[in-house]
């Protein structure tokens, strides 16, 4: 396959950067200061979209994992790998921003807030997922196992959230300022779309890398015991572009 989508991918990047520039202007100067949080609240314009994108990316990962188990294809495996890595990127810096937000707001770097805590558990779970992919050499086994791990890890997210919430409510109730006006919502949406474009750009490029790696791994049939004969569930190397 020729790289006919290259223009589209680069267009996504340009669109993302432009929207991000508008979003930064809106978030940093156009949107009004918040009533209680003052200027510090402007962190949410990068923190919240990052968390949304992390959740979106792990959801994409789950879809790939489930659909891989029903019908195997290298494409789904590559997309699962790409979305997990991008989820770790957004979740990783999103958590750092959450910690920076906690410092002026609650006076500590880490407050065991249910949302931040469950996100950090999720981040560690997906780091484990990525590490597992590195530790398994057989591409077919890696694909099946990581699909299983991806499903198990995703199901854990709401359970972690509930458990941490219960655990915390016995201590204190976190009050999140609910003083949001229309300008703030708009600025948040612009930033979220900028992050979405950039995430799509990242996932797409990471997917191509994963696809090329799979192609290189499967191109050596002798290296794999199963690819010589017929495999019932494994994808056929020939379908690789």
């Amino acid at each position: 396959m020729n790289d006919k989508y290259r223009a589209l991918r680069n267009g996504l990047a340009v669109l993302g950067v432009l929207t991000l520039a508008v979003g930064a202007y809106m978030g940093l100067s156009w949107a009004p200061a918040e009533r209680e949080m003052g200027e510090v609240y402007r962190i949410i314009y990068v923190h919240v979209p990052a968390m949304w994108m992390a959740l979106l990316a792990v959801t994409l990962n789950l879809v790939c994992c489930i659909s891989y188990l029903f019908k195997a294809s290298w494409g789904k495996d590559a997309l699962a790998e790409a979305s997990a890595e991008v989820a770790v990127l957004f979740g990783g810096f999103g958590l750092v921003l959450g910690s920076i937000w906690a410092k002026p707001t609650w006076g500590v770097w880490w407050d065991w807030d249910p949302r931040l805590t469950s996100m950090s558990v999720m981040l560690v779970a997906y780091l484990g997922y990525l590490a597992m992919r590195k530790f398994v050499e057989d591409p077919e086994k890696r694909a099946v196992w990581s699909a299983v791990v991806g499903i198990i890890a995703y199901v854990d997210i709401p359970i972690v959230w509930f458990s941490v919430k219960w655990w915390r409510t016995l201590h204190q109730v976190q009050s999140t300022p609910k003083t949001v006006d229309a300008d703030m919502t708009l600025a948040l949406r612009v930033n979220a779309f900028a992050f979405l474009f950039l995430m799509a750009f990242f996932v797409w490029n990471r997917y191509r890398i994963a696809r090329a790696q799979r192609a290189a791994e499967v191109a050596l049939p002798e290296a794999l015991p199963t690819s010589a004969g017929h495999t019932s569930t494994g994808p056929v190397p020939g379908v690789l572009s």
Partner: peptide, 13 residues
């Protein structure tokens, strides 16, 4: 290394 890496975050709740 892999088993605790996968298991520990999962069993948090």
């Amino acid at each position: 290394v892999l088993l605790p890496l996968l298991l520990f975050p999962l069993v948090v709740p």
